[in-house]
Each structure stands twice: as structure tokens, then as C-alpha cells.
């Protein structure tokens, strides 16, 4: 390989995208999750990260004409257990695929960071063999939270690992035209601490708490697109509490700051 071969010419007029399975959400993301880069979904637990991730596993199998990638997907999960019940439920409401969709979802549990580094090099063979076009890691934060002490050398080692993981994932994304989706948790922001502003200046709120994405500044450098999901509790009448959910673009190379409300139904996740 020569450096001259790294030149891409002519450039394609459009980046391939993976549909989210809902036209309203697709419009927010101008077509869906972009291939060849890393998209991160940040949300507190119970907002719908995993729901969206599961939906993407099925959407990836749709033919290209329907916004899918006509390919299988790989789901690496560090949050247990894998929600089989839910994916069965989603399948029930989806248009029938000519094949069994579950055959095209590869699942691998991740127990530690070392485990992830064990899996990553193997992907070079697995991805082309199984025609994988989507990798989901749910969640990246669960792997890192707890394994590191809060002191300078540990944090330095941690951020080195961030870049290593991100670089490897981007390498595969480029090489095989993959869409890569990672989920991340949130951390509360203390009012007193001078907070670092990443992405949109308006601070992120979920359930009335001020939060920011977990894993800090150096991780933020590792993703191309960051999406934030949050929920608001609306009191309806005296007793009923209604939960409203929203999806927002925090930063992305091709998207403006914008947001939209969504609901989670039995059939999946939809924009309203």
C-alpha cells in the first residue's frame, strides 16, 4: 500500500446512512446514522438508548432502498442481560423479513476492557465473513466506570485506551463501511464545579437534573457525532405523571443543533 492510495477520488456525493426506522427521527439526522464514523447516544438509564440500539439492529437488515444496509449487525453488550424479550416483541411488529432476522444479529457480552481488546482484533475476520455493517456497543461507559481510580496516572491510562478503541473502531468503519453506534451514560454536574462545555452551550438536563456525558473530555474527542436523549416528567392532573422523551444533536459534523420529541411504543421508538 502506498500513501497515494489513501487519496479518495472521486468523492461520493453522499455518505451512506442507516435509517432509524422512523421518518421523523431520520429527518432530524438527515437520513439516519452515518456510516464510516462513530455515533454516540448519551442518556440516563430508562430513556431509551437500548431501545433505539435494538431497533437499529433490525433496521440494518432492511434493503438499501428502504434505508437499511442489507447486512447483519454485531451487538456487544456490557449491560446485562441482553433483552431477548424486547427484540422478539419488536420483531413481531416489523414487516416480515425473508430470512430470520435473529440469524443476522451477532451478540457478544463484554465483561471487561481487556475482553473488548480481545474481541476487537478478531473483528477483522468476522466482519467480512458475516457481512456485518453495524456495530453497537451498549454501553461503553459501563466498561470504564469503576475500573479506574480517580488519580492522574490512571486517568491518563484510561484516555489512552479511549483513543485506542476509537481508532480501531474507526479503522473498521472506514475499511468495511460500517455504522458504529455506542451508548454512554450521564454524570450529574455539580453546580459549584466549573463545568467544561462540550458541544452546545445549553447544558443538558434530564429528569430535571443537570448532567453531562460520562467519561469526560478526552472521550468526547473520540466520537464524531454525539446524540443526547433526555426525559421530562410532566404532572398531568393530581396523580398521573407523564414522561416525555426527547432526542437532540449535541454535536455532529453535518448536523445543526436540533431536537425532537419521541415516544416508545410496543412497536418501537418513534418521533412525534
Amino acid at each position: 500500500m502506498t500513501p497515494g492510495e489513501l487519496l479518495r477520488r472521486p468523492l461520493p456525493a453522499q455518505t451512506a446512512k442507516l435509517t432509524l426506522g422512523c421518518p421523523i427521527l431520520d429527518r432530524l439526522l438527515r437520513g439516519g446514522i452515518p456510516c464510516e464514523s462513530i455515533t454516540e447516544i448519551v442518556a440516563e438509564s430508562g430513556t431509551g438508548k437500548t431501545q433505539l440500539a435494538l431497533q437499529l439492529l433490525l433496521a440494518a437488515q432492511l434493503p438499501v432502498s428502504d434505508g437499511g444496509l442489507a447486512a447483519a449487525s454485531l451487538y456487544l453488550h456490557s449491560e446485562f442481560p441482553f433483552p431477548f424479550r424486547r427484540i422478539h416483541q419488536l420483531l413481531f411488529h416489523r414487516p416480515r423479513f425473508p430470512h430470520n432476522p435473529l440469524d443476522r444479529i451477532f451478540i457478544e457480552p463484554l465483561h471487561s476492557i481487556d475482553h473488548l481488546f480481545d474481541v476487537l482484533p478478531r473483528l477483522d475476520d468476522i466482519i467480512p465473513k458475516s457481512n456485518i455493517k453495524l456495530i453497537v456497543i451498549d454501553s461503553i461507559a459501563a466498561l470504564f466506570r469503576g475500573e479506574f481510580d480517580n488519580n492522574a496516572p490512571e486517568l491518563k491510562r484510561r484516555s489512552g485506551l479511549f483513543f485506542k478503541i476509537s481508532s480501531k473502531l474507526k479503522f473498521y468503519a472506514r475499511k468495511f463501511g460500517l455504522a458504529v453506534v455506542l451508548t454512554n451514560q450521564v454524570t450529574d454536574v455539580m453546580e459549584s464545579s466549573d463545568n467544561l462545555r462540550i458541544g452546545n452551550p445549553v447544558s443538558l438536563f434530564t429528569s430535571g437534573r443537570k448532567v453531562c456525558a460520562a467519561l469526560g473530555l478526552s472521550w468526547a474527542n473520540c466520537v464524531n457525532t454525539r446524540l443526547f436523549m433526555w426525559r421530562e416528567e410532566d404532572r398531568v392532573g393530581d396523580e398521573n405523571v407523564q414522561t416525555r422523551r426527547f432526542l437532540r444533536v449535541v454535536f455532529a459534523p453535518h448536523l445543526p443543533d436540533s431536537s425532537c420529541e419521541f415516544v416508545i411504543r410496543r412497536e418501537g421508538l418513534f418521533g412525534v
Partner: peptide, 28 residues
Amino acid sequence: KSFLDNIFYFRVCTYTEQIAVINYLEKF
């Protein structure tokens, strides 16, 4: 579209590639 054609786009995935491209730039 012609703006796009006038951008020579190199995608590099490792630091060795990055150094190689920068060394190659002089010739390019």
C-alpha cells in the same frame, strides 16, 4: 459539485499512515 472535485481527500486510519501521507505530500 466542482468544489468537491477540487478537494483531495486523504482518510488516514493510523499514525503510520499519517506520517506516510505527510511525507508523500511533497511529491503530490
